[in-house]
Amino acid sequence: MLFKFVPREDWLPYDRENLWAIRLSADTARIRNVAFLQDGVAMNDIVRFTTDASGVNWAVGRVAASGQCVIRVVPIPDGPLGRSARSVHEAFAEFMLGGESFSESFPMVAFDVPADADFAAIKRHLESGCERGWWDYEVGCGTDAWWNA
């Protein structure tokens, strides 16, 4: 499933992201991985899509939210974790979050945060890591429960 977006200034130069998806109907699919670049979509969300003449499926909007969230964490290169995506994964091990690393040269980790996760504890951990110079982070997809935690 391809998502097209306007690249952000001072960020990665991409204008699309391909996410795994399982077709549910002629024009809907369930997202099956974590988005590194596309905002507003999380694992297990259902999206509507169109198919172009080449057979490529393009997302056109979210139909149903799963309640899951996406946080993206980038270790500070000269911080205690260095340029290690593995160290970021280890730093979040207590929360048992699934996630993927972008690349060795850009060790951003995109975490899938389940709807029943302890959002408040994860947010405290994110902020603590920022304050200690371990990482920067952003929320790629948040729910009302996330923002209100």
Rank of each mutant, 00 (worst) to 15 (best):
C130M: 07
S101Q: 14
P7S: 10
R32V: 10
D144T: 14
F5T: 07
P77K: 13
I22P: 00
V88I: 11
T50Y: 10
Q38F: 01
F49V: 06
D136P: 00
V109T: 01
V47G: 07
G67P: 12
D116V: 13
R83S: 15
I22E: 15
I71Q: 05
I71N: 03
S84G: 08
F111G: 02
P7H: 11
G140C: 08
L81Q: 08
N44P: 00
F92D: 04
P80A: 15
A110S: 14
A65Y: 09
F3S: 02
D116M: 11
A42G: 10
E94S: 10
R23E: 14
A42Q: 02
G40Y: 05
R32W: 11
A115T: 08
D15L: 02
L37N: 01
A85I: 10
W134A: 04
I76G: 04
D27R: 10
A149S: 13
H89M: 15
R23K: 14
G133T: 12
R48P: 12
A117S: 15
G82K: 06
S84T: 02
N18S: 10
S66I: 13
A91D: 11
A110V: 00
D45L: 09
F106I: 15
D10H: 14
M108K: 14
A21T: 05
K4Y: 12
D136E: 12
V139E: 12
R23D: 13
F36Y: 11
A120I: 03
G67K: 02
A115I: 08
S84H: 08
E90A: 14
A85K: 07
V113I: 15
